[in-house]
Simulated scan of single mutants.
Amino acid sequence: MAVLGFALCMIIGSDFGSYISSMFIAWGFVPMICSFASYSEKETKAFSYTAIAFAAVYTVLIMVVYFAQLTAVRLLELSNQASQILNYKSFGLFFSYDLLGYAFMALATFFISFTIQATTKSDKWLKALLLIHGIFSVSCVILPMLGVFKADMAGGDLIGILVLEFWCAYFAPVCILSYLYFRRKQ
């Protein structure tokens, strides 16, 4: 639900809703990864533990970024320099932290994919989607280092919305397939 809420908030332009939804995604992601880990076999426990650690790092980074957006950025009169650093929309440090957080999310999905015993067609899709999602980690780390995102970038907001909507369209099936996976495991 949080992924769909995030997609909707991006479309209607609700920053507040987008940030809250992102926090709920993070709060749900760690239990999801831990649930996968609880079903992992002995020989894949290292993958499970790695995924849990990466999920925890993702959550901390995301919570710092979006909590700052909902508190300091939204409620305080920030200097121009502080705003450039803290305001997600300035493509500054906190935007880079956000991407770093999503790199850890992608790494968590990559590693947890190795724990899934794909016995059904939907399990095979889930495993593939989680594995492929791991590839996003590379771009999430490299693009900020290359300075691709800038505050004065033409069409930056639209590009950001389109990329995030693509991510939602990609990740929503992961959530649905995960639900089906866990339901079968019970």
Rank of each mutant, 00 (worst) to 15 (best):
F6R: 00
S79L: 05
M1G: 10
F67T: 02
F29G: 01
S38Q: 06
S96R: 07
W27A: 15
Q186C: 12
K185Q: 12
G160L: 09
C34R: 15
L86C: 08
L107C: 13
E43P: 03
A72H: 14
S113P: 01
F110T: 00
N80V: 04
W125N: 07
T50Y: 08
I116R: 05
C168T: 01
L129W: 05
I112A: 12
A53T: 01
D123W: 02
D157F: 15
T115D: 07
I52Q: 06
I116Y: 11
L8W: 12
F91H: 11
S96M: 10
V138L: 14
V138S: 09
L126Y: 04
Y102E: 10
V73T: 00
S18C: 04
S96I: 02
G155H: 07
T109G: 06
G92N: 15
R74W: 14
A108V: 02
A103V: 00
V30N: 05
I135M: 13
T44C: 05
W125Q: 08
A118S: 06
T115W: 09
T44K: 09
F136E: 08
G28N: 07
Y58R: 08
D152V: 00
T109R: 09
M10V: 01
Q186W: 13
I142P: 01
Y102I: 04
Q81V: 00
S178Q: 04
F104A: 05
P173K: 08
Y58F: 14
L180W: 13
L146M: 06
V3M: 13
K127D: 00
I159P: 09
L75F: 10
K42S: 01
N87M: 05
Y179K: 14
S35H: 08
M32N: 11
A172M: 03
T59D: 10
A68C: 13
I132D: 09
W167F: 14
S113L: 03
S83E: 15
I52N: 05
L76N: 06
L164V: 02
K124A: 09
D157P: 09
V3C: 11
M145P: 05
E43S: 13
A106C: 09
I135A: 13
Y97D: 12
L107A: 11
M1I: 04
L143S: 07
G17A: 13
G147K: 03
V65M: 12
Y102C: 10
A56N: 12
F94D: 08
L146V: 01
T59M: 15
V64A: 15
C140Q: 06
